[in-house]
């Protein structure tokens, strides 16, 4: 079970993530887009899911990632991600509840380039009972 004290806590990724054109190209190719100028709208998940998983695997949080299912996803895109962006990820557990034994956790992740907020994402994750 999740430690209730971790709700509202913000975890900061240690290192900025560098975005390369080849990563954008690979992601865009999956949906049939060639020679992309900017990253596709959902590209940020590549950064936020891995980073928030790492951050929230902190033993003080207590989430069981092995039984996790993706429930909902939301993006607020302030500007498209482009090659050369150096993005830092911060993740906050915004909401937590238990329903029918399942734990339902909403994690907000913000990607900043310096002080500029580029993308905010909300992932609702369900830890199955």
């Amino acid at each position: 079970m999740l430690n209730p004290d971790s709700v509202g806590r913000t975890f900061y990724g240690a290192e900025p993530v560098s975005v390369t054109q080849s990563e954008i190209d690979s992601f865009a190719a999956v949906v049939g887009e060639l020679n992309p100028v900017v990253a596709p709208p959902t590209f940020s998940i590549r950064i936020t899911l891995a980073q928030s998983q790492q951050l929230l695997s902190d033993p003080s949080v207590g989430l069981d990632w092995s039984r996790l299912v993706h429930g909902d996803q939301k993006f607020e895109i302030h500007r498209p991600i482009v090659a050369g962006d150096q993005l830092t990820c911060s993740s906050t557990i915004e909401n937590y509840k238990v329903a029918a034994g399942n734990e339902i956790v909403t994690v907000r992740s913000d990607l900043h380039a310096g002080s500029e907020l580029v993308v905010s994402t909300w992932s609702t994750l369900v830890v199955r009972a």
């Binding site: 992601f27 100028v37 900017v38 596709p40 709208p41 959902t42 909902d72 996803q73 607020e76 498209p80």
Partner: peptide
């Protein structure tokens, strides 16, 4: 992957609206 579904739906939207840079908000439930 649920996020593959969303990536394809985003492509559907942005091919209509004017390209990848046009998306401001996007959400869904799996």
């Amino acid at each position: 992957h649920g996020m593959l579904t969303m990536a394809l739906v985003a492509k559907f939207v942005t091919d209509w609206s004017g390209g990848s840079a046009s998306m401001k908000e996007f959400s869904g439930r799996f």
